[in-house]
Design a protein around this nucleic acid. Structure first.
Lengths: 210, 210
DNA sequence: CTGCTTCCTTAGCGATCGCTACAGCTGGCG
DNA sequence: CGCCAGCTGTAGCGATCGCTAAGGAAGCAG
């Protein structure tokens, strides 16, 4: 439908006019992330967000759409910055132990809010924020599936017995991570969580013996 | 201090006039418990409570004080009805295994909301409901202390080695319970949780050698 | 400079929050 | 019966929620 009567024009109309913003969008998003991380989705109000970001509501809505989309962008930034999990390593046991130790340190790192945003930020929340809850739940299940796949890889390579319960192990270690989250939010320190990881790793099955 | 000037009077003035209520207080409290259990403290509004209980706001405030006190009464009813944990048994391992199996069944019981009210109902919630959060956190820490005491009792009786990390085990099994809560809220079924308990019990230390 | 576009600011929208004033009804008492 | 106490329903309080209309300030084209 777009009429272009002058073919001599070198610049077509769809020239994306970059918004001239008076504030740092990335910095504001980082601030919003900390707010959501600390208080959760529903308990973080737009007014507290705008106050923390140093902007006014219309600026927030112009830059991020609405509170819901801002939260999704914050979650994306979180999983890009903090929430990345790599299960590389010689075997599943080593990889899991390393990931759990890293989580013990990260969840209690005093330079940011305790625990994990994906686990904590939408556990409560009545009807109306059902899509937020399912968004985070999907991420949790993805992590659990990652655990299961890593264990299954060891089984396929013969490092673990064929009758190893990969699903049960995945549910278990996902629950351990979520329990560490709760403990960290309750004030348990890094050393206690690391000792807990030692206990949890004792539950890992023995390698396939000769 | 109570003055009773007329000894002939069989009924003293402090005769507690039982309120003439037009609704069943206990039944209404049970309904409120389910609401808080499902949506958490902050996300459960007074209007949704009164609608579910079949009463009007003034009746709620006359019978329970305010939303905060109603919640505490609901928590008390919960811990009296569902949340009781008994660690009796021949040794800590048996007792813990029984408790965890019971929890696996209870958190996924379809006859009531999933998971545990004490763990779930106040994880989010901004400033202003800090006392609610600390109330539930204290109950969680009491359970964790119960775990530690049960393990320590086995150590004192010589059933477990002296160098057993009672605190680490308590943190671990508390985290397992809290992880089961999250998994149950995410839709994991009873059988998967029970297999997970088997994995978790594999982390329990071997009894003290002969 | 004048126009045009785009953002920021102020102010406030309707809805809902926890909570309560007020009047009416109802039951126990003399 | 009349009186009073105490609960019940209606209606609404001030505050906050997520969100937005309207006008002024600022950069770019001519």
């Amino acid at each position: 439908m777009s009429s272009e009567p002058s073919p001599a024009r070198p610049e077509p109309p769809p020239r994306a006019r970059r918004p001239r913003r008076a504030f740092d969008r990335d910095a504001a998003l980082a601030v919003a992330l900390r707010e959501f991380w600390t208080y959760g989705y529903e308990s973080t109000s737009v007014s507290s967000l705008t106050k923390a970001m140093g902007i006014n509501p219309p600026s927030l809505y112009a830059a991020f759409g609405d509170k819901r989309q801002l939260f999704s962008e914050a979650v994306e930034l979180y999983s890009r910055t903090y929430g990345s999990v790599s299960l590389e390593g010689p075997d599943a046991r080593t990889a899991l132990a390393r990931v759990l130790k890293h989580i013990a340190a990260d969840y209690t790192d005093p330079s940011h809010p305790p625990g994990c945003l994906v686990i904590t930020a939408a556990t409560n929340g009545g009807p109306g924020s059902e899509d937020v809850k399912s968004e985070l739940r999907a991420m949790r299940e993805a992590t659990k599936a990652l655990f299961a796949a890593r264990v299954q890889a060891d089984i396929d390579e013969g490092l673990l017995p064929d009758d190893t319960d990969a699903e049960g192990l995945a549910v278990f270690y996902a629950a351990v991570v979520q329990g560490m989250n709760q403990q960290a939010c309750d004030g348990v320190g890094r050393e206690a969580l690391e000792r807990m990881v030692d206990v949890a790793m004792a539950a890992f099955p023995e390698p396939a013996g000769r």
